[in-house]
């Protein structure tokens, strides 16, 4: 399964990507929105894990762009704000999305990834 991780914290996202890779997921990561869009043009991702709050573009905006590139892409949002409102907003603006609060539990994240792709 192809998974795209986007977060402005490189150290965080690289470690997370490695952990997912160890668990058998084909993971790529980007620390900027531009990189993420570029990657999405090259690979057909099934799941994107996005940080809600990033410089230049927020996760929800990025989702709209990515949806244009990979129509079957599912989304999981991650936030350090612990706010349910963002989750509701994500749901309202385009179908299925999950919402997770930092600090992340890797097992929960993987569970969500499988849940959202129904595999």
């Amino acid at each position: 399964m192809n998974v795209l991780l986007v977060d402005d914290e490189e150290q965080l996202i690289s470690a997370l990507a490695e952990r997912l890779s160890i668990r058998g997921l084909n993971t790529q990561w980007a620390s900027t929105c531009d990189d993420a869009i570029q990657l999405a043009e090259q690979t057909d991702f099934e799941v994107a894990v996005l940080d809600v709050k990033m410089p230049k573009m927020c996760g929800i905006e990025l989702k709209k762009v990515l949806q244009g590139k990979c129509p079957r892409m599912k989304f999981i949002f991650v936030t350090g704000h612990g706010s349910e409102e963002n989750y509701r907003k994500g749901l309202a603006e385009g179908g299925e999305a999950y919402y997770l609060v930092k600090p992340l539990n890797i097992e929960v994240l993987i569970q969500r990834i499988y849940d959202i792709t129904n595999t």
Binding site: E9, Q11, L12, A15, L16, E18, R19, I22, R23, G80, H81, G82, K102, P103, L104, I106
Partner: peptide
């Protein structure tokens, strides 16, 4: 404060998680 701490905390979390995974 919570938000600022959350980010480094998440890095610790994932790095330590990675160590554990390894």
């Amino acid at each position: 404060v919570a938000h600022e701490i959350n980010n480094p905390l998440e890095i610790i979390n994932q790095k330590a998680g990675l160590i554990k995974d390894l």
